[in-house]
């Protein structure tokens, strides 16, 4: 009972009440995140419609292998984290920590591949939309636009990844201090929702970046 009272905030009538509020808060936050990414996807598809060949030329320059590996890495990371959630539901704090560390490391692998390897290649090949842009006419303008979306989309997604890593790290920190049990694991669930959402965004970005127009 003492453990329950230490985690329950004063405005709630019960731990369950608090957990429900926290989880619905995160769902609502994720709804706002959907609407945050929405205009990016809308503008992306809309601009592609008017600059199809340029976007195709841009998409053909992207690194499909890194993108695909990263997709697998990210989805696996979420899977492992979700396993961790079911372990703590059963009260196994040690396995939760192991899962979180695994998920965290895979997230780091994603960031390294994305920004350490792929972005570096992109800059070396002069694909950043600037005056020395590598793709020449007739598709220059459309390809420039494609890479505007590419860099903005991956940067914003990457920022969400970094926030996610901080959150997962925070869960590891708290789990090591034995704060979670079968009776209280709301933060673990809440962070899990966020961590899966970051996947969802990537699952929309992946075809927009690497697949559509590659075969054209």
């Amino acid at each position: 009972m003492s453990e329950v009272s230490s985690t329950q905030e004063f405005q709630y009538s019960s731990p369950r009440h608090q957990a429900e509020s926290a989880i619905s808060g995160m769902w609502l936050f994720l709804a706002t995140e959907m609407l945050f990414f929405g205009p990016l996807f809308l503008a992306w598809i809309y601009s592609r419609h008017w600059n199809q060949q340029g976007f195709d030329a841009g998409a053909q320059q992207t690194e499909l292998i890194i993108g695909t590996v990263n997709t697998l890495v990210l989805v696996t990371s979420s899977l492992i984290y979700t396993l961790g959630v079911s372990f703590i539901e059963a009260g196994d704090s040690r396995k939760l920590i192991q899962c979180c560390v695994g998920a965290w490391l895979l997230g780091l692998v994603f960031l390294w591949l994305k920004f350490g390897v792929e972005w570096r290649h992109d800059f070396e090949r002069r694909l950043f939309p600037a005056s020395d842009f590598a793709i020449d006419d007739p598709h220059r303008d459309g390809a420039l636009l494609f890479f505007v979306f590419y860099f903005l989309g991956t940067a914003v997604h990457g920022l969400h990844m970094i926030v996610g890593l901080i959150l997962v790290g925070w869960i590891i920190f708290r789990a090591r201090r034995k704060e979670f049990s079968a009776g209280f694991y709301t933060p673990v669930s809440v962070v899990g929702l966020y961590w899966s959402f970051v996947d969802m965004v990537w699952i929309v970005l992946y075809p927009l970046i690497y697949l559509i127009g590659r075969g054209a």
């Binding site: 706002t32 929405g38 505007v148």
Partner: peptide, 21 residues
């Protein structure tokens, strides 16, 4: 509000890099 957020990001990107949507 989130829709405005992303729209402003696109706007800032266009303003800074002189390239955009």
């Amino acid at each position: 509000t989130p829709v405005l957020g992303m729209t402003l990001l696109l706007l800032a990107f266009e303003r800074i890099f002189h390239i955009g949507v």
